[in-house]
Structures are given as C-alpha cells and as structure tokens.
Amino acid sequence: MGADFFEILAEVSRENPVLYGAIVVGVILVEGIVLALLMELVFKVLGIEVKEVPHH
C-alpha cells in the first residue's frame, strides 16, 4: 500500500507539477505547525518551561 501511495504521488508530480508543488508546500507547512505545537506540548508535559530570555 505504501508503495502505491508513493506511486500516486509520483504520478501527480508528472501529471500536474503545480498541484504537486502546492501539495509539497501545503503538507510541509501543516506538518511543521502541527509538530511545533506537539513538541511544545511534550516539553510542557516534561516540565521544561521556556521563558523569554533577555539579550545582553
């Protein structure tokens, strides 16, 4: 199934490059935001509090 999915993506990139470009940017953007929020939650659970730091 994984291999099929990869093939579909390859097909999209060949058939409609602009759509593939949009998919790449969209997927990575959403993934980045979700992971950033998830990581924040994980750090909160671990109790590693992040505070703003003054810059001297």
Binding site: V25, I33, M39, K51
Partner: peptide
C-alpha cells in the same frame, strides 16, 4: 529545501517562545 521549510517552522516556533 522542503525539509528546511518544515524544520524552520518548528525552530521558529520555539525561538519565538524564547523571545528570539
């Protein structure tokens, strides 16, 4: 480049929290 984009989003979130 795609990996850098995702990576920068995550790192920017964290640095924003640190006030950087």
């Amino acid at each position: 480049l795609s990996q850098i984009m995702g990576n920068s989003i995550v790192a920017t979130f964290k640095h924003r929290k640190l006030g950087n």
